[in-house]
């Protein structure tokens, strides 16, 4: 759903909004999300022989190295399940429709918006949130700290996670690649200058 972090040449959020009328953009986003849900839901339901009408199913998710089991409605998003069932509250709910990045998690190495990812389709995959990141001086959070890459802190988990995913894929990003890589995340306090510098510094620190 969200791969511009991993492919610096892919269209960013802002390119996307610019390139299409707002109404069209919304329609496409909604459609994409639904297609993703339908396929995943169908697969999970077929294997578990469960009625699509109502009720809950049991899922096991690999979150930050732990296997966590819970009961969910099949339509639950990964964000809902992380926050409300598993008490993993790092990822934040902000826009709830894949346009701000505050809910970003790393799913099998890819940065994804957990608000538009189904929990059942995340089974069997490795889910990482910022709670699992390196808290030492070589880690991404430390670089954010050094560069004042936050104000209110609500977008911060998403930025830190997107940055982590970016650097795992591309350890030597240019300024443009950083800007593009983090363009799926928004910050209303406007702390972009610190965030961008943090990403560049983190790239250096990881190599040391």
């Amino acid at each position: 759903m969200r791969d511009n972090v991993t492919d610096p040449n892919a269209a960013s959020r802002r390119d996307f909004l610019r390139g299409s009328s707002v109404a069209a953009a919304t329609a496409v986003l909604t459609q994409t999300a639904q297609v993703g849900m339908d396929e995943a839901a169908a697969e999970a339901l077929a294997t578990q022989q469960i009625s699509a009408q109502s009720g809950t199913i049991s899922v096991t998710l690999q979150v930050n190295g732990k296997a966590l089991k819970t009961e969910i409605e099949p339509r639950s998003t990964l964000l809902d399940v992380l926050r409300h069932r598993l008490d993993v509250t790092g990822p934040k709910r902000v826009c709830d429709r894949g346009s701000c990045g505050a809910c970003t998690v790393i799913l099998d190495g890819q940065a994804v918006y957990s608000c538009t990812t189904l929990a059942i389709s995340s089974q069997g995959k490795t889910i990482r949130t910022l709670e699992s990141f390196d808290t030492g001086e070589g880690g991404v959070p430390h670089a954010f700290h050094q560069n004042d890459g936050l104000m209110c802190g609500y977008c911060t988990p998403g930025f830190v996670t997107a940055c982590q995913a970016l650097l795992e894929k591309n350890p030597n990003p240019t300024l443009e690649e950083v800007k593009k890589g983090l363009d799926g995340n928004i910050c209303r306090c406007g702390t972009y200058v610190g965030v961008i510098q943090a990403a560049l510094d983190a790239a250096k620190a990881i190599k040391v």
Binding site: T26, C95, N185, Y192
Partner: peptide, 19 residues
């Protein structure tokens, strides 16, 4: 009417110039 962050465009990193 445009009560969502996909329809109400606040600046992103790409919109921010040198300040």
């Amino acid at each position: 009417r445009n009560a969502s962050l996909s329809d109400y465009a606040i600046p992103s990193a790409a919109d921010v110039p040198e300040i």
